[in-house]
Design a protein around this nucleic acid. Sequence first.
DNA 1: TCTTTATTCCAATACTCGTTGGAATAATGT
DNA 2: ACATTATTCCAACGAGTATTGGAATAAAGA
Lengths: 220, 220
Amino acid sequence: MKTRQIKDHLYAQVARIGKAMASPKRLELLEMLCQGEFSVEHLAAQTSMSVRLVSAHLKELKMAQLVRTRRAGTYIYYRLADTGVADLWVALRVAAEGHLSELREAKTGLVDRGEEIAALDGAQLMSWAKLGKVIVLDVRPQPEYAAGHLPYARSLPLDDIKRGSVALPKNRPIVTYCRGPFCLMAKEAVGVLTRGGYRASRFESGVAEWRSQGLPVVKD
Amino acid sequence: MKTRQIKDHLYAQVARIGKAMASPKRLELLEMLCQGEFSVEHLAAQTSMSVRLVSAHLKELKMAQLVRTRRAGTYIYYRLADTGVADLWVALRVAAEGHLSELREAKTGLVDRGEEIAALDGAQLMSWAKLGKVIVLDVRPQPEYAAGHLPYARSLPLDDIKRGSVALPKNRPIVTYCRGPFCLMAKEAVGVLTRGGYRASRFESGVAEWRSQGLPVVKD
DNA sequence: TCTTTATTCCAATACTCGTTGGAATAATGT
DNA sequence: ACATTATTCCAACGAGTATTGGAATAAAGA
């Protein structure tokens, strides 16, 4: 029966993508790459992995055609093949949140802490930001902000906030966001800002989630 | 650093879903389960796998909480945990088609053959079917049709078509569909019908693709 | 040319996964 | 109670994967 061979081949191809997304480390790399393009070294530093290991995992992702590379001098920069890859990462994460009770527990127990999360939808946040009702802060490192950020958001990296170099009006509520639901930078920023007398809360989405909902991402 | 442990745990949870979808056999089982609920034995027969192997793969899917079971006598019926799982399968397949050139080649070379594919969108097909401009045929086995089918579609299993028990008007175009892009039943049906003097073409989507586009699925 | 830096390749390790055969469960019917 | 049927569990093998160390590329600068 030739039909079986054809089917086996087709499913095997799809499974290649699945295999690429079957490793926690590779998923973390993919989420990083949703923020922009980075060198192997930088990815290794951000994910607490050895350079060699990052290289090996990126090789897998490249063979699955999920990422592309660009050479600049001695550096090699990796980026997502297209925004569809980011959508796939978001879809997988959402599915995991929906299905795995352990993940929900881990998130509610460790990442969230009561009032820190502002559970509002993106369109509403954007309209408030447009009117100046809230200040939206992108607390990621500046290169990631430059690669693309939420509309009306201003860049104020977490490191700067920690250093105390915050000059914001205290009468308006502040909403922070970072790389996404699994990133803890925005949470940490809320902690520092709240102690400093600001009314701060966290928005869970990152640019990948934002874009996957069809909302516009700004690059300047 | 505790942050690392939290992150490792979060990504590991998502990777559980990825791992579950990293096997060709499991993907084939998932696609079958998009058509309805089935016993282990039936799934084994449909996928040319041994019962034991199907059982082992279903166990993996169950541990990832992608499927649920129901006992009826000596049979145990498996079904998807919810329609979100079907959406995830569709999303993964679409991503694979977009990224893997080998998959595109395999599909255009083996599955498709020129005019057999009707490249029209679902909403248009449905409006034509409603007006009676086309006859939409669900060529899957009848239990799968009963579990949910496209609106205005009538059931005519491929086996019946092969047996020659076709009583359809020859003046109207026929559109066949089956389990999805990787299923070859609709293609085979088009071949038989065309030889019998009908104007038949294939619609690539199955109920999972249909539903994931927000279109209604009928159950009677 | 020689050195430096970023990255990849190769080899070796422990580990996990897919698959199969034979035995064990769990419900059904006699 | 016994045999039957559908399914799962256990053990085992080979194949594939993750990770690490050391060596090899490839571009840049002295």
